[in-house]
Amino acid sequence: MSAVVSSVVPSGEKLALRCTGLHRYLGQGEGRVHVLRGVSFEAQPGQVYAIVGPSGCGKSTLLYLLGLLDQPDAGEIAIDGQLMSNSEDSVRTAARGLHIGFVFQFHFLMLEFSALENVMMPMRKLGKLSPAAMAERAHGLLASVGLGEKTHRLGTQLSGGEQQRVAVARALANQPAIILADEPTGNLDVKNSAMVFDLLTRLAKENGQAVILVTHNPEIANRCDLVRPMRDGLFV
């Protein structure tokens, strides 16, 4: 059951992510568009948030800003209490590896690598686990998304739904505090959409991760804890 809210943060609650007054312009010259017009948002651990709205309203732009893939023209982003919006590229990159997991609409698997290698990729960069422990965790994650038997298949040898499930497992690999999903079911049929969404929310809930997903699918949105509708670069 979802609830459309304007403010989701009870005072004193620890936040996984917070942004205030985000502005973002895209394009140049006459084509320059004011995509985000002072957006503020907060996410708590263990909650699933849906950002909904018409195409071009700034949902994905906001998601990339929250994921530190892009930098705002104005405003602040804090992750795990640390201000990240204006920090150096190396700091934002490290924060992405440590705190954030991404699931994109078109899975974005690395097709020359097996499912197992794709899931191990973020772990290998973080380097916290031994190779054996990484492989064990990757096996576990793939088993939890129902791909325990297909761990050694290359990305090209998996169906669209399977690829997206691998992407979910990969997003969870480093146990990030925040999962950002950009239309994670947008390219899947109904059955696979439901499966991927269930997996994402179940695993995130189990691990106390904040999930922020952008979706056009009202059924998916309605199953989130909180829905934030957007229009013309602002939450409404």
Binding site: G67, L69, T93, L98, M110, M121, P122, K125
Partner: peptide
Amino acid sequence: TKDIAILRSMGYERAD
């Protein structure tokens, strides 16, 4: 380019 974006989103640095 997409693989580069994925790697960067996972925490791979420019130097990587």
